[in-house]
Nucleic acid binder design. Structure first.
Lengths: 213, 213
DNA sequence: GCGTTGCGAAACTCAGTCGTATCGAAATCA
DNA sequence: TGATTTCGATACGACTGAGTTTCGCAACGC
C-alpha cells in the first residue's frame, strides 16, 4: 500500500515543501555575481547565500557542488536573440552582428562570455551548456540567413556555412577584444559583413555581380 | 665622498646579491602553474614558492603583488611566430593560421590564451601586455602579407586590413573553440583562407580574377 | 495536534592563503 | 674580519571559505 503511494508520480513527500522563491533567489544571485565579474573559481557559496538572503543549508540541500549550481543558473538564461530575418542577406547579417556588438557592451554579458571562453577548459559541462544556449541558436539563425542567400543567388551556391559563421562571429569577437583603439566602432558590423561578402580578392572589373541575370 | 659613490650608476648595493637563478625559477614556476590551467585569481604565492623551491620572502622582495609578477612572467614569453613570408598570399595566410592552430593544440598555450581573453577584463595591464606580446606581432606579420598582396594585385587594392586580420584570426579562434565536432579539423586553415579570399558573393561566371593582366 | 521536512541563522571544524617576522647560513664588499 | 644583504625555512596571526551541525520556527499532510 505505502509502496504504491510513494511510487506514484506526483507523490508529494511529507513535510514542508521546498521554497521555489528561495531557489530563484539563489540562481539569480549566482548570475548577478557572475555578471559582476566574479569568476567561477572565486564564486563562493557563502557570497551566493548572502546575496540571495538564504542560508547555506538551503543551497547545499539542492546542489552538491558549485559547478552544478552554475550550470543550472546558466540554463535559465534565455537566449535574447530572435531572428533578425527580413531584408537582404547583407542587412540581416549586419543586424545579427549589431546585436552581438550591443550585447558585448553590457558588463554582465561580457562577464558571462568570458566564463564561456575561459572556464570551459576546466568545466566541460559549462562549455556544453554554453554551446547549447548561446552558440547553437546563433548558428541556426545565421545559417538560415545564409542558406536563403544561397537560394536567391545573393550568395555563392557553394558557400561553406560553418566557415562563414566562424568568419563573421569570430571577426566580431576579435575586433571587440583586440581592436587597438578603445573607440565604440559603431560601423564595425557593416565593415565586417562587407569585407566578408566581397572577399579579399579583386573583382574582375565589372561591378555587376551577375551579368546574365 | 660617500654620497658620490652611492650615486654612481653601477654602484653595487652592499651585501649578498640577489640570485638570478631564483628569479628565473619563480617566473618559470608561475608560467608552469598558469600553463596547467590555474587562473590568475587562484594562483597563490605559496604555490609558486613551493614549485620554484624558493621562500615566499624571495618573491615578496621582488614583486609587491601578484599582478606584477604575472605581468613580468608573461613578458618573458617569446613570441614564437616568425614570418611565414615566402609564397603566394594564400600560402602565407594558410601558414599563419596553421601556426595558430598548432599553438592551440598545446595545453599551455590554450591556458595562456584563456587568461588573455578572460582575465584581461579585470587586469588591464595584463591585457596591454598581451596585445604587445601576442596580438601586435601577429598583426604586423599578417598586415605585411596582405599589403604585399594588394601591391601585386593578388588582393583588392581597397582591402580593409584590420577587418581582414579580424576575419582570419577570429575565424580561427572561433572554430577552435566552438566547432561542433571535437575533431582535429586538419584543413581548417585552408578552408578559412579560401572562404575569406573568395568572399560570400558569387563571382561573375569568369574564374579568371584579372582578365586584362 | 503530530510527525516530517524546509527554512534562515549561527556556530563549528578544517584547510588554504596572505603578508610579515624570525632564524641560521651563505654571499658579497670594504 | 665585520657589516650588510639575501637565501630558504618556518612560524605566526588574521582572514576566508568549505561543508556540517544545531537551533528555533514555519509549512505541509494526516
Amino acid at each position: 500500500m505505502k509502496t504504491q503511494q510513494t511510487a506514484e508520480v506526483a507523490a508529494r513527500p511529507a513535510g514542508r515543501p521546498r521554497s521555489e522563491k528561495a531557489e530563484r533567489s539563489i540562481i539569480e544571485a549566482t548570475l548577478e555575481l557572475l555578471g559582476e565579474g566574479i569568476g567561477v573559481s572565486e564564486l563562493s557559496i557563502e557570497s551566493i547565500a548572502g546575496r540571495a538572503g538564504v542560508g547555506k543549508t538551503t543551497i547545499y540541500r539542492r546542489w552538491s557542488n558549485k559547478e552544478d549550481l552554475v550550470v543550472d543558473a546558466l540554463a535559465t538564461l534565455k537566449p535574447p536573440i530572435p531572428l533578425p530575418q527580413g531584408g537582404t542577406v547583407r542587412d540581416d547579417l549586419v543586424t545579427y552582428l549589431r546585436v552581438i556588438q550591443e550585447e558585448s557592451r553590457h558588463h554582465r554579458t561580457r562577464c558571462i562570455m568570458n566564463i564561456a571562453m575561459s572556464d570551459s577548459e576546466r568545466h566541460p559541462r559549462l562549455a556544453e551548456r554554453f554551446r547549447e544556449l548561446a552558440v547553437e541558436p546563433r548558428r541556426a539563425v545565421v545559417t538560415a540567413v545564409l542558406r536563403r542567400g544561397m537560394e536567391t543567388g545573393e550568395l555563392r551556391a557553394d558557400l561553406d556555412l560553418d566557415m562563414a559563421l566562424a568568419l563573421l562571429s569570430g571577426a566580431m569577437i576579435w575586433s571587440t577584444k583586440w581592436s587597438h583603439s578603445g573607440d565604440p566602432q559603431a560601423d564595425l558590423p557593416e565593415r565586417i559583413v562587407d569585407e566578408a561578402l566581397k572577399g579579399f580578392r579583386p573583382r574582375p572589373s565589372t561591378p555587376e555581380p551577375c551579368p546574365e541575370l
